[in-house]
Design a protein around this nucleic acid. Structure first.
Lengths: 213, 213
DNA sequence: ACAAAAATGGGTTGTCCAATCCAGAAAATG
DNA sequence: CATTTTCTGGATTGGACAACCCATTTTTGT
């Protein structure tokens, strides 16, 4: 059996936490396969067989990292999730994501999506963990849209729109990461939100951000 | 310098081609890092140091694979690209992509996007190669939308819409790959095309007429 | 037909890295 | 305070894999 969160001393918990955080950071910066356990060990400031004391193997560490990153991503957005039931809230969420990528100089992509892409075809267990993380993300978006729908302000299926918005976000992040500019993310999210807005009762004559023609 | 397509015998060209095709297939099925040169060698049906006879190192092979996959992806869609200047053509393209993923049982994701995600943070040269491939893909979509725009049938910026559509496609593919079902891809593309359709002349967002459904 | 160039085969090497062992220090428990 | 469990350190092993070498065969050009 693996990680049933064995009884750990306070110091032990702290060390374990440092290892996961360091691993998450390295995997994010360099990619999963470029982050060796030796690197993790050094970055976490632990030594010797510490990593193997807390994790059965690299796979177990990876699963912990996926959990960790899922929590981190969702926690970071939590304040914004609460306001996704208005167009203003959705735009604010969009701005926050774009601004975040800009600060990172468009590096790293999505902490969950990048991992997902790397494990999808050779690690079923990790694939499911990532998929499960995405379900939570999707649910957070869906909740906002469902509230709009319930108030009669949104035509169209909130579930489909939430999933499509998450897809637009992921695709935008990938292209932004590859091109090192925020444009793809901006445009992808704007298109998604413009589409949602076009399905609201208060239909603006012209679409949102980019004025064309 | 590397790959200036040295003078190669017919047999040599054929062998080189087999190696690239085998490498592309393996990298697609297992991911970049899980495809060892030994695997490639065996799959290509060549032996010994053949791989190094045709490529300086794994990096050179990877760059060749990126080129190869870009061509493959674009060639496969070429017939459909020509019709992207009507909603019917766009829907047909969407159906074709969905059907293709269904046949693959939602495995593999995007041949270019998966590679891109894996190399983005640790291989600048490969990152640029993938980015360049995406530009060609984006251009193909843009061409159709620009034609619609030029005919006065499409409001909104064709460039932004093309980029957003490619992002939706990529995000949809990633989620489809992770969840092993075509739904995310379907919904992502439908949302994107619905949005485009809402910006066409024929289909105006009706304000007051029908009841909200 | 005959050199020159290219293609092929298989073996080898050096490195990196995940994983394990064992022994000693620190901390919890009664 | 004793002893049992948990935590920490360093050293080592075994395997995998990228990269290189050289001898032999096949193809190309004249």
């Amino acid at each position: 059996m693996t990680s049933e969160t064995r009884r750990l001393t306070r110091k032990g918990q702290e060390t374990r936490r440092r290892i996961v955080a360091a691993a998450a950071q390295l995997m994010y910066e360099r990619g999963l396969t470029e982050a060796t356990l030796e690197d993790v060990r050094a970055a976490a400031g632990v030594s010797g067989s510490q990593v193997y004391h807390y994790f059965d193997d690299k796979q177990a560490l990876l699963l912990a990292v996926i959990e960790y990153q899922t929590e981190a991503v969702l926690d970071l957005q939590q304040p914004l999730f609460d306001k996704l039931d208005t167009m203003a809230g959705l735009r604010q969420w969009r701005d926050s994501l774009v601004e975040y990528q800009r600060r990172l100089q468009c590096r790293g992509g999505c902490p969950i999506g990048s991992l997902g892409s790397e494990v999808a075809e050779n690690n079923p267990e990790a694939r499911l963990a990532v998929a499960s993380g995405f379900l939570r993300w999707e649910a957070a978006i869906r909740q906002g849209l469902q509230a709009m729908h319930a108030r009669g302000e949104l035509r169209g299926d909130p579930e489909d729109l939430a999933l499509a918005t998450l897809a637009a976000l992921q695709g935008g992040l990938l292209l932004t990461q590859l091109q090192r500019r925020v444009k793809p993310l901006e445009v992808a999210l704007d298109a998604s939100l413009d589409h949602i807005e076009s399905l609201t009762e208060r239909d603006r004559p012209h679409a949102g951000t980019a004025s064309a023609t």
